[in-house]
């Protein structure tokens, strides 16, 4: 049975549309049981030692599914997991139809200078991250490319978190602080001169949860660590 399934997946993918090859996986668009589906295939990385590669790939597939489930149970928008295959390391996910990445959204909105809308978005991101951390999910790879925004007909927008491959469960403020630090660096390097926007994000993060203040304190510590880092050679 398992053998049959793993044979069927390459065939299934060969008919699917390859959307992109990310750093982690190939991403396909297909239809699965009549639903628009995104298939994320973690293919072997030949530059890595095979033992290390298998271990990482398996662990990340498991972690991704686990964290999505945990987020969804807490009411955080993330794509539904339809199916997982641990032999070929494929995850079948709900396609968030009609969405764009927060990254593209910020880039296009900044040109047209709608600062109100961006402020709203930054606050929304802060809230959703506070909620995620409240569930002890540490994303591990927070960037504006890993957040999707779907505009709905009533004018409201829904924010989705994706790409949980580096995620893990931890209650430590340290881990959550590093999570925000990773986002801060990715945010400011991808969107130059948006310091005030990111501050807004952090403020809304701090206001959204009781656990936040310890995390923000850790974030300040991690930042200093970065600066203090010996920079020789």
């Amino acid at each position: 049975m398992a053998q049959e399934k793993s044979m069927a997946i390459p065939e299934f993918l060969s008919k699917a549309e390859l959307l992109k090859q990310g750093a982690e996986a190939r991403v396909y668009r297909a239809e699965f049981l009549g639903k628009p589906t995104i298939v994320k295939e973690r293919f072997p990385k030949r530059y890595r030692h095979p033992v290390l590669d298998e271990k990482l790939t398996h662990r990340r597939t498991v972690q991704e599914v686990r964290s999505i489930l945990r987020c969804r149970r807490a009411g955080i928008s993330a794509p539904v997991v339809y199916f997982v295959d641990y032999t070929s390391h494929c995850i079948f996910l709900e396609e968030i139809v009609g969405s764009s990445t927060v990254r593209d959204h910020i880039a296009s909105t900044r040109q047209s200078d709608c600062s109100n809308e961006l402020a709203w978005l930054a606050e929304r991101v802060g809230q959703i991250l506070a909620k995620m951390h409240e569930e002890d999910v540490v994303h591990g790879d927070l960037t504006t490319s890993n957040m999707l925004l779907r505009h709905q007909e009533d004018g409201e927008s829904e924010l989705f978190l994706i790409d949980f491959g580096l995620s893990y469960i931890s209650a430590l403020p340290e881990d959550k602080g590093v999570d925000l630090y990773v986002l801060e660096k990715a945010f400011l390097s991808t969107h130059p001169n948006t310091e005030t926007l990111f501050e807004r994000l952090l403020k809304s993060y701090a206001a959204a949860s009781k656990k936040s203040s310890a995390v923000i304190k850790k974030l300040d510590e991690v930042r200093l660590r970065g600066r203090k880092r010996s920079m020789v050679g």
């Binding site: 590093v178 630090y181 660096k185 990715a186 390097s189 991808t190 130059p192 991690v222 660590r225 970065g226 880092r229 010996s230 920079m231 020789v232 050679g233």
Partner: peptide, 22 residues
């Protein structure tokens, strides 16, 4: 020996996208 950074150029700066945190 002292640096580990992933850098890309944009808008008149070499921006640090990734680096060691220790």
């Amino acid at each position: 020996g002292g640096n580990t950074q992933v850098i890309a150029y944009s808008e008149r700066r070499y921006r640090i996208f990734g680096e060691t945190i220790d």
